[in-house]
Design a protein around this nucleic acid. Sequence first.
RNA 1: CGGGGCGUGGCUCAAUGGUAGAGCGCUCGCUUGGGGUGCGAGAGACUCCGGGUUCAAUCCCCGGCGCCCCGACCA
Length: 518
Amino acid sequence: MNKPADQQKKPASAVTPRAQDYAQWYLDVIRNAALAEHSPVRGCMVIRPHGYAIWEKMQRELDDRFKATGHENAYFPLFIPLSFLAQEEKHASGFAKECAVVTHHRLKSIDGQIVPDPESKLEEPLVVRPTSETIIWAQYKNWIQSYRDLPLLINQWANVVRWEMRTRLFLRTAEFLWQEGHTAHATEAEAREEVARMLDVYADFAENVMAVPVVKGAKTEGERFAGALDTVCIEGLMQDGKALQMGTSHYLGQNFSRSADVKFQNREGRLEYVYATSWGVSTRLVGALIMTHSDDAGLVLPPRLAPIQVVIVPIYKTEEELARTVEESRKVAAELRAQGVAVRVDERDGMMPGAKYYEWEGKGVPLRIEVGPKDLEKGSICIARRFLSDIPGETPEQQRKRRKSFLPRAEAIASIKPTLDAMQKELLEKARAFRASRTRVIDALEAYEKFFKEEGGGFAWVHWAGTAEQEDEMAKRFETSVRCIPFTDQLPAEARGEGKCILTGKPSAIRVLMSKSY
RNA sequence: CGGGGCGUGGCUCAAUGGUAGAGCGCUCGCUUGGGGUGCGAGAGACUCCGGGUUCAAUCCCCGGCGCCCCGACCA
């Protein structure tokens, strides 16, 4: 059996599914599945059409939720004058090491070499936005005078640049796409409500759209956003046992309104600085999606994010059969589209059906319909699912058979939407079951070490009362960190209650989430 | 910025101190079609760059550049 070169060479992980190798297999999948690749510009990524289509679907789902919570979209400049960044001290030092800086505005040919024209040096360098707080708040100063102007609820879809030392496709690239919400409020309470509301939006999106279960909680001081008083986040668990921060929402207090001098006159007529929040998610979510659901056959996409939900493959021998099966395929496609299902008919000629199956499975299409001469005779349709929950001991061959079902035409078409909905739920359940199998409540360092060094790791609920230095110690010894201090309702029942810090033995009121992370 | 690995047709990789070969992909023809059809023909490479050793370097040595992986930094 001949296979394409990119699959002949199986990654080591397919043979030895060691957790550590597994992640690399997924990163490999990203490339092989033609979602994205690194661009010639160091550390940047090129998102290919199939990958971008997933991001577009994410955008639409998120944008609907932002609108539903009263937000509007706007756009602010890519370039930030250096002095703006210097205004908020902690913010500036937090981003200082990772900024791209524009210093000239013209090129010149000197001795055949194209170089920045020394004459064109900018008086003040411009920073390519690593995030937009400073430039947005410089605008808000003009937009906010009275309590009647508040709350100001704005979101921006944009690209940002962070010149990281080390990049990872989808998880950390020099340039990435994201959305950043920046809101202004009259009171602290209102701003804090906004912070919580948007985190809930993210959690809802992660679980119900991405089918990735998440833990909501607060960051420790060391992991907080530069310039924030409080950072809350959602944390997901990837299949290699590492945690991934999937979204953050920050309470900024009056830090940015003070440095940008944004005051409003309250009902009593007194001037006051406004209260700020910011929140964002990025194309990293596409990485999260892949690393949560993919299997050895390639991507697995939840139906709600699949750019193509159903692919129809006509099967034929003769010209005449080709005409008939293609015609029927198009009819079925039209009927499904009328129901709002995203369908693609794969009419490529000269390609074996099997080759098409492999390709679409690799790209994560949830359902495949096969329309062949036998179906036309019997008035039936063959439906094949991308995945099923595993039955222990089952061979791939057996599962392949189990994944296919032959139904009468009308019944088959009626079953598509319910099946997609069911698959969406199953995927979340599958991810939940995986997370549960890799989650431990741990009280002793020996068990902790064993969990992370021998058992593949995952989420550990442990009591913690250590200092920032002691967090570093845990990082050095076990490569783990405090992912978040969970909201109390996020703790599993067996992890509730007081106890003693796993490292210092000091009393602790609540367990925190510890894990290795990206 | 440290530690490791690798640079050979478009891709994935072989081989050899005497200037290269396969699979896939691509083009053409036939064949085939419910899980990666089969056959034939064809196009396509100054073996990353610079220097050294040698009668002779893609191979050995030194330097550079680039890429990948692992750490520190981070969404």
